[in-house]
């Protein structure tokens, strides 16, 4: 039963996520809120592992979420289900490739789903920003900002942001630096 639900949910993720691997996140958050197969906290951990493991992030995180929900079979079902829409859609598009680019409705849909997909990813960004940088808003006090803002996280974020403006985009660079920063903080906390 869980596997049928998994198939249905991850098929939807594959069919509606626009903008690549990270675009699956809003859907995965939504799934965690409805089914409680995994918590939002676990999703963030899964995301961290998926980003530093070989393979497309979207597939990694789907496999992960499936495994969390229903073990090995769940992992297989969710991976299969997230890929299936790609498979069917791409073959359909391939056959229509010449007509595809001229079709009025296809163009209208492609024109409008990308901004929506972009907004969904941005919204996940806001959520992660809230999780990582801001602490409990209820304790907000201008004189005790450290209780409210995680300055170490903010420092790393701003540092990476400056770097991203100056250096060519290479995802591994950011992940490597941020992992290293985590290790350094850990070592510092030991002494």
């Amino acid at each position: 039963m869980v596997c049928l639900l998994l198939f249905y949910e991850f098929f939807k993720v594959g069919l509606f996520s626009v903008g690549g691997g990270y675009a699956t996140l809003p859907f995965l958050y939504h799934i965690s809120e409805i089914y409680h197969w995994y918590s939002a906290r676990e999703l963030v951990d899964m995301l961290a592992v998926s980003s530093i493991t070989p393979g497309p992030v979207g597939i990694n995180v789907a496999t992960f979420a499936g495994f969390k929900s229903a073990g090995l079979l769940g992992a297989f079902v969710s991976t299969f289900a997230i890929i299936l829409p790609s498979f069917l859609l791409v073959i359909l598009i391939y056959k229509l490739l010449n007509k595809f680019s001229e079709n009025f409705y296809v163009q209208a849909v492609l024109y409008s789903i990308k901004p929506a997909g972009c907004a969904l990813i941005a919204a996940v960004g806001v959520r992660l920003f809230h999780d990582y940088i801001l602490r409990d808003i209820s304790v907000f006090d201008i004189h005790r900002l450290t209780a409210f803002i995680d300055f170490k996280a903010l420092f790393l974020l701003v540092g990476l942001l400056v770097l991203s403006i100056k250096v060519k985009k290479n995802p591994l660079l950011y992940l490597g630096i941020s992992a290293l920063f985590g290790i350094l903080l850990h070592l510092k906390s030991l002494f």
Binding site: Y22, D45, A48, A153, L156, I183
Partner: peptide, 19 residues
């Protein structure tokens, strides 16, 4: 936990670049 914490912020930047 600390490595994941760091990687999470790296992911935030990757999300931003994707957007």
């Amino acid at each position: 936990v600390d490595i994941f914490w760091g990687v999470g912020i790296g992911i935030l930047i990757l999300l931003l670049l994707t957007v």
